[in-house]
Simulated assay, not measured.
Amino acid sequence: MKRGTTLFLKAAVILIGIPVLALCIFAVPEFANYTVELYPNMPYLKTLFFIDLYASAIPFYFALYQAFKLLNYIDKNKAFSERSVQALKNIKICAITISGLYVAGLPLFYLLAEKDDAPGVIAIGLVVIFASMVIAVFAAVLQRLLKEAIDIKSENDLTV
């Protein structure tokens, strides 16, 4: 693969991380404070909101790091290696973790949507869950295909 293509993908990975960082810095505290305004008798919701959203940001950035590593392996012509399989496995685990954290946080989104009369909040949570599961399945398929390609390659190397 040409270096320009992976350079573009590396830039895309970085550009994907920037808006999420901005959301973590600016939007999450505002949403948490807004939740406390809606439910003043439940101040622990703010902490739960922080825990859920910031805890999901950690596997998100780890998955981006793994994608960056995978692109580096492709640059070095080591795409068909166990390291690539491990990176895909880590991306799959991160996507499942994000999905699980958002499933656990859906009751918080429901409370926010119920009080604010905004059902779109629940839809956003469901979209994140669905997207994470699609990424997990895609990474699992790629991981399996890459593992099979590595096995075929090692068999061919042994027969020659």
Results as ranks from 00 to 15, higher is better:
Pro107Phe: 04
Ala12Arg: 04
Phe130Gly: 10
Asp75Val: 03
Leu70Gly: 10
Ala57Tyr: 08
Phe49Met: 15
Pro43Glu: 05
Ile93Ser: 08
Tyr65Val: 12
Ala140Ser: 14
Ile93Phe: 06
Gln66Tyr: 14
Ala118Val: 14
Leu112Val: 09
Phe31Leu: 14
Ser56Gly: 02
Gln86Trp: 05
Ile152Asn: 14
Ala149Ile: 00
Glu82Asp: 08
Ala104Trp: 15
Thr5Tyr: 12
Pro107Ala: 02
Lys78Trp: 07
Phe109Trp: 12
Lys76His: 09
Ile25Lys: 06
Leu142Ala: 10
Phe68Lys: 13
Lys46Met: 07
Ala95Asp: 01
Glu155Arg: 07
Gly100Thr: 02
Leu21Thr: 09
Gly120Thr: 06
Leu15Met: 09
Gly125Ala: 10
Leu108Ser: 01
Lys147Ala: 14
Leu158Glu: 15
Tyr61Asn: 04
Pro59Met: 08
Lys89Val: 00
Ser81Ala: 09
Phe50Leu: 06
Ala113Glu: 01
Lys10Ile: 03
Ala67Ile: 15
Val28Ser: 03
Leu38Asn: 05
Thr97Tyr: 04
Ser56Leu: 00
Ala123Lys: 11
Phe130Tyr: 09
Ile18Arg: 07
Ala139Phe: 00
Val36Arg: 11
Ile14Glu: 00
Asn156Arg: 14
Pro40Asp: 05
Ile16Thr: 14
Ile51Gln: 03
Gln86Arg: 10
Ile124Leu: 13
Met1Val: 06
Lys153Gly: 03
Lys78Val: 04
Lys147Phe: 10
Asp157Arg: 06
Leu126Gly: 10
Glu30Ala: 15
Ala22Gly: 15
Thr97Leu: 11
Gly4Trp: 08
Lys115Ser: 13
Thr47Asp: 15
Phe49Gly: 15
Ile91Cys: 06
Phe50Asp: 08
Leu111Val: 01
Ile98Pro: 01
Asp117Ser: 14
Asp151Lys: 12
Ala57Glu: 03
Asn77Glu: 15
Ile129Trp: 07
Gly120Tyr: 05
Lys115Thr: 09
Leu48Val: 00
Asn72Gly: 07
Asn156Ala: 09
Ile135Ala: 13
Ile18Leu: 13
Tyr34Asn: 14
Thr47Lys: 04
Asp52Ile: 12
Gly17Ser: 07
Ile129Met: 07
Leu45Val: 00
Lys89Gln: 12
Leu88Gly: 05
Asp116Leu: 10
Phe8Tyr: 12
Leu106Gln: 12
Lys46Asn: 08
Gln66Asn: 11
Glu148Val: 11
Ile129Arg: 05
Val134Ser: 02
Leu142Glu: 07
Leu48Ser: 10
Leu88Tyr: 05
Ile150Arg: 00
Glu37Val: 14
Arg83His: 15
Ala131Phe: 13
